[in-house]
Amino acid sequence: MASSPQYPRMIPNLGETLGDSGNLLARARRGERAAQAALFHEHRDRVARQLLRMTGDANSVDDLLQEVFIAVFNALPGFRGDSQLETWMYTIAANKVRNWWDSSRRRRRRESRAGEREPPSPTTPEEELARQRHRDRLYAALGELPHKYREAFAARVLEGMTLKEASTALGVGISTLSYRTRKAEQLLCEALGIPGRKPS
């Protein structure tokens, strides 16, 4: 497929990527170490940023990154190229994050029951501390949302994808995605005690 102008940010140089790295992909599929390393370097930062925005937990990014790339290389022989590689990897990462939220939510509930939540580091500057509080508040509320709403909100609002990009990446229709994003916003406002947007 030729490079599509409607995916300028999410998939830069897609045509080049598929054209030039077709050979790279085939070699990685065969399990060639150097090809896999090249693919990893090419996509590492984008996947890491996605994982960070979806989880809000910088400490988990490395672990999740490993899981995602191992899963990607494991499933690479089955990748037929129906979708773009980036979209396919986004879906794999979203699934890993989904599992992470499940286990993370369980862990946090255990911790909150035991009252073991660690206080933030006292060495953090005030502004960063305020940001960190904002992030904690947002991700705590996001973690309580059903997967489908959280993923829609993360893709559209946190990742800043267009409706079409997010719809392709998450494998749902555009109108469904739009509804889920609005619903996620509404649920977040309720959970955070923020007055919601007035219906137009």
Binding site: A48, R53, N59, V61, A130, R131, Q132, H134, R135, L158
Partner: peptide, 9 residues
Amino acid sequence: AAARAQPLP
């Protein structure tokens, strides 16, 4: 905005 500004570790 705070979430988006989080630097990549």
